[in-house]
Design a protein around this nucleic acid. Structure first.
Lengths: 220, 220
DNA sequence: AAGGAAACAGACCGTTCGGTATCCTACCGA
DNA sequence: TCGGTAGGATACCGAACGGTCTGTTTCCTT
């Protein structure tokens, strides 16, 4: 939990799901500033000038380091996604216990994220929402991110003994997404409690053999 | 079930949750074009010129009728929200049956929405996501919309005999939001089936007296 | 001490943005 | 015949956009 040492190479567990690395190079400052502004105000609403003002760099530096705004956006999403996943998976894994214990930590972890002053929703969902929905660009990035997260949940769901880990992971994914957007809109971290309440039975009743999930689907 | 008439033109149950009213006046065409482009490409990414080009009107007409882009955005959200709610509530209510039957229609209805060619996610969620998250403007509009929807679900949850209709409505709301954003990102209407699968037990097991929801929360 | 890379400042480019002004056309009821 | 209204066309405005340019400062290396 407590973490020593510097950045870059050292493996540190983040306390926070995002974006304030202590990288004080121009690149790091630009990435931090762009992350903050893109997430807070939206990508299209954030101009280059605002980013360099917050980063305290020159415009030249930005274009030397990233080449274009598009590249900067991609770099932000990549680093932010990586940091978020490390935080999220870490929050499940740290503290040990069985799969159920780990999966039960999902929504308390999200709740603490929602309560942060700089919680602005999911950058991937927001990025998709403010761009062409027929284009694959952001949707594929978002799906790649989601796939990694759900993959880990699916693995835990398997350890849990679920008879359909894929479906269970998707169910939890739905609750996660729902909680994130509801928290973004309402600014109420308490939505995570509702999500936890909904997820609870899924995690405890998934061991006993009942009808298979796919069959239940047919019944609807 | 079919209710006649009150407003404006003829009152017909919409087959579709959005935006293509048959109003062929300049105002109607502008509203349709703006709705389509805002939802498809994002509000900030959509310029006035693109809107008037799709509407086939002059820029003057837009500003004579709406005054500003901001006003146009608000008009779009208002009309779109109203149409969506009428469609959604209609989809639950039409066909009758008890509260459980009505609530069970939620996700099949959403699925048919997700499958539409012009499904671009929830305009309110997307609008919040691409603007300042510290500002109330879009968040309050979105919450107002959501409150009406959840209010209706809550009423049905009460009829269902749920011992905590408010919590049940919020649980369903979470699944609805999650399904909408997941469908927007993945373009897979099937997420509605996963949501239905998750909601099913909530609707059937809510009658028997168990621990109160709030108590379960404490247990987490 | 000298050199060079990295970052600085900021003027500047062409384009597009939201928005305004002017003038024109068509229709419609009195 | 008339005037009013609704809408169309187009030129234009200042500001902001993403991006480039020239030139200066800082600092590490040798």
């Amino acid at each position: 939990m407590a973490k020593p040492s510097p950045n870059k190479t050292s493996k540190q567990k983040s306390q926070s799901p995002h974006g304030t690395s202590d990288d004080e190079s121009a690149r790091g400052r630009l990435l931090n500033a762009a992350t903050h502004l893109f997430c807070k105000n939206g990508i299209n609403a954030t101009g280059i000038d605002a980013i360099i003002a917050e980063a305290g760099t020159a415009k030249t530096t930005l274009y030397k380091l990233f080449g274009s705004k598009t590249n900067l956006v991609n770099a932000v999403l990549e680093s932010e996604g990586k940091q978020w996943r490390e935080w999220f998976i870490g929050a499940m894994e740290e503290g040990g216990g069985d799969a159920q214990a780990k999966l039960t930590r999902i929504f308390p972890a999200l709740k603490s994220w929602f309560a942060e002053e700089r919680f602005y929703g999911c950058p991937f969902i927001n990025a998709v929402g403010e761009h062409d929905k027929d284009a694959k660009q952001f949707r594929s990035i978002a799906m790649k991110h989601k796939k990694i997260v759900l993959g880990h949940i699916e693995k835990l769901a398997g350890e849990l003994g679920s008879n359909d880990p894929v479906v269970l992971a998707h169910q939890l994914g739905l609750l996660i997404d729902g909680a994130i957007v509801a928290a973004m809109v309402s600014r109420d971290p308490g939505v995570a409690d509702t999500a936890a309440l909904t997820a609870g039975p899924l995690l405890s009743q998934s061991k006993p053999k009942k009808k298979r999930a796919a069959d239940q689907l047919e019944a609807v």
